[in-house]
Simulated assay, not measured.
Amino acid sequence: MTTSTATANRRPVIRASLAVGAATGAYGVAFGAAGTAAGLSVWQSCALSLLMFTGGSQFALVGVIAAAGPAAGLTSGVASALLLGARNAMYGVRLAGLLRLGGPRRLLAAHLVIDESTAVAVAQPEPALSRLGFWVTGGAVFVLWNAMTLVGAAGASVLGNPQTFGLDAAAPAAFLGLLAPRLRAGWTERLIAIGGALVALATTPLLPPGVPVLLSALVILPVLLRHRPAKDPT
């Protein structure tokens, strides 16, 4: 592959990564506002984004604290956050073979294993582009999410409800953009997407936020079992 061809292949990945990073990072303002509304200080909200850095778990934690109060809701809030954060471990298993990292870089990569960086990485046709997409997406989301958390926490009373500006639709829209090419791949991918959507729609009214997404991911298990490699008889 020539240098010009490699550069041309990298540009769409970088553009997609930055677009996903901007769309997702912008919604950090909603978490900052939710954190202070739940009784956290500006710096406590920012520390959660900096150290926890997994949006669904962060919203689960502050949502339970807001509903039950800091004293009564802390334990259940942490449990909910851990449940939602468990999906990142599954992402890490999938990404390990793509990234092939060790030492300090592996620790840094682990902190950037989120929905968006995983989605962009696995959507690429070759490992080099997967690594590029992972780092650019993870880095962009991390920087913007933390910056917008500070904006939302410090200016919650001025900004008002972030849904007024349509920011709640930014992250789902970014994921639909990543999903669209997969739906053209074949009927197996389409059936998985439809099945996952139906599971999420059926369980959303009944379960805490984030749990329906985890359940919808189980739709892929029958496909994985069906295509499991046969054991070597020798």
Score class of each variant (00 low, 15 high):
T75H: 12
A140K: 00
A89P: 03
L101K: 09
T3E: 14
S76N: 12
T75R: 08
P104T: 11
A23P: 00
L167E: 03
L167V: 09
G35S: 07
L101D: 02
R228L: 13
A26M: 02
T118N: 05
D115S: 09
I14E: 08
T54F: 15
L51C: 13
G186E: 00
P181C: 02
L191I: 14
A202D: 06
L95R: 01
S130E: 02
A30H: 03
P181N: 04
S57I: 05
A26T: 03
P127E: 14
S216F: 08
I194G: 01
V151P: 00
P233N: 14
P233I: 11
T204R: 05
A123S: 08
G85A: 15
N161Y: 07
S49M: 15
L218I: 05
T75K: 06
V141F: 03
F142P: 02
V223C: 10
G56Q: 07
L225E: 10
Q124T: 07
A19N: 05
A38D: 06
L207E: 08
T54C: 14
T3D: 15
L215N: 06
V136T: 07
V78S: 04
V211N: 15
R228H: 10
L50F: 15
V64Y: 06
T2Y: 13
A67C: 15
S130Y: 02
P233F: 10
T36S: 07
L61N: 08
I194R: 05
A180P: 00
G63M: 11
V122N: 00
A22C: 14
W43N: 10
H227K: 12
L225H: 12
L61F: 13
T164M: 12
W135N: 01
P222Q: 08
H227I: 02
G28S: 06
V20F: 07
S216T: 09
L74K: 01
V120K: 00
L178K: 03
A109C: 08
A121C: 06
V93P: 01
L84T: 04
L215D: 08
L95K: 01
L159Y: 05
P125A: 11
T118P: 01
A60W: 04
T204Q: 08
Y91A: 00
L201H: 04
A174N: 04
C46P: 06
P181L: 02
R228K: 09
W135V: 03
V151L: 10
A72Y: 13
S117F: 03
P70L: 15
V29D: 03
L40K: 06
Q44L: 11
Q58M: 15
L144G: 00
T234Q: 12
G102P: 05
S76V: 13
G102T: 09
A34Y: 04
S4N: 11
V219L: 05
G28Y: 04
L108T: 07
L176H: 09
N161A: 13
M90I: 14
G152M: 01
L98E: 09
Q58E: 15
G160C: 09
L132M: 13
L84G: 03
G195P: 01
G177D: 05
L214V: 10
T137M: 01
G210H: 08
S157E: 14
F142R: 02
V158D: 11
L224P: 08
A8W: 04
A60D: 09
L224K: 12
G35Y: 06
N146Y: 08
G195T: 07
V29Y: 01
T203R: 07
